[in-house]
């Protein structure tokens, strides 16, 4: 029997995680920095590990996790690629390895100190099926802050997405706007990771944006479609899982992958149709 009171927050969680990840994906895929998700996850893990070692427990660990993720976002946004002579992906690779090293060092200390690291693990690798209303409100808050920021700095972010250097040269406050976006992206990713898990978030960052890029022209349309496809993957994947008794994470990931395949097919068919002259 499908108990709506139990599953409603799960469905809302899937919807919000899908939508906010789809929104983030437009920038992450568009700027070719897919490593951002992994990097932020490990920075959050490092923050949570050291928070736990300092005596924090349970949901309070979200605070040091957020601090770790935001510190990484700040480093990525404020370090000038021309001065560091590293492009964003190399810098992300460095930050990823550094934060991963810190996280594993901290996890090693749990053993040395004879303490349990269960709190840390459960915080960062949650499952959608255990999403409750408190998590939903947290995710909604992060998603709303991100959406508000994108709405406010819509034209600046469009320019940055095209080229950070060109945006700077055209008199746009590119470093400040981009750093602000990265901070909100890190916060959204951390909240989503701890609620619905990493595998699902990685796929929801990449797939809806990739499908939207295949189907539409224009920044606004791509944003809207990526959010819709992300939300549809999150909710639709869960409903398929509920109907078939399959794992929800897997069905969500696979549904978002199907969207990419269908978008690719649609684009190829449309090109063939217009090339054959039928579309004129």
């Amino acid at each position: 029997m499908f108990d709506l009171t139990f599953w409603l927050p799960v469905m809302c969680g899937g919807l919000i995680a899908g939508g906010s990840s789809g929104l983030l994906g437009v920038f992450i895929v568009g700027m070719r920095i897919p490593f951002l998700g992994v990097c932020v996850a490990h920075a959050a893990l490092a923050g949570a590990v050291f928070g736990s070692l300092l005596g924090l427990t349970g949901q309070a660990l979200l605070i040091p996790a957020l601090l770790g993720a935001v510190a990484t976002a700040l480093a990525l946004g404020l370090l000038d690629p021309r001065r560091t002579r590293m492009d964003d992906n190399v810098l992300l690779g460095f930050l990823f390895s550094f934060t991963m090293g810190l996280a594993f060092l901290g996890i090693g200390l749990f053993g040395v100190l004879g303490r349990s690291d269960n709190d840390v693990r459960s915080l960062l690798w949650g499952s959608l099926n255990f999403c409750r209303w408190r998590d939903v409100w947290l995710m909604l808050g992060a998603a709303a802050a991100l959406a508000g920021y994108v709405f406010t700095f819509f034209k600046e972010l469009r320019a940055i997405l095209f080229s950070r250097e060109d945006a700077l040269a055209a008199g746009i406050h590119a470093p400040a706007v981009w750093t602000g976006f990265l901070i909100l992206a890190a916060a959204t990713l951390t909240v989503n990771f701890q609620t619905v898990g990493g595998l699902m978030i990685y796929s929801l960052i990449t797939n809806p944006a990739a499908a939207a890029f295949q189907l539409v022209k224009g920044f606004r349309r791509a944003l809207v479609l990526a959010v819709v496809l992300g939300a549809a993957s999150g909710l639709g994947g869960f409903l398929i899982s509920a109907a078939t008794d399959l794992p929800s994470g897997a069905t969500i990931v696979l549904l978002s992958s199907v969207f990419v395949a269908l978008a690719g097919l649609a684009r190829t068919s449309f090109k063939r149709w217009t090339a054959s002259g039928a579309g004129r």
């Binding site: 034209k155 095209f162 060109d166 055209a170 920044f219």
Partner: peptide, 15 residues
């Protein structure tokens, strides 16, 4: 595959 239109790219000059 970034789907920015030409008009949007030129609009960066006004941003």
């Amino acid at each position: 595959e970034l789907p920015l239109t030409v008009r949007e790219v030129v609009a960066i000059g006004r941003t």
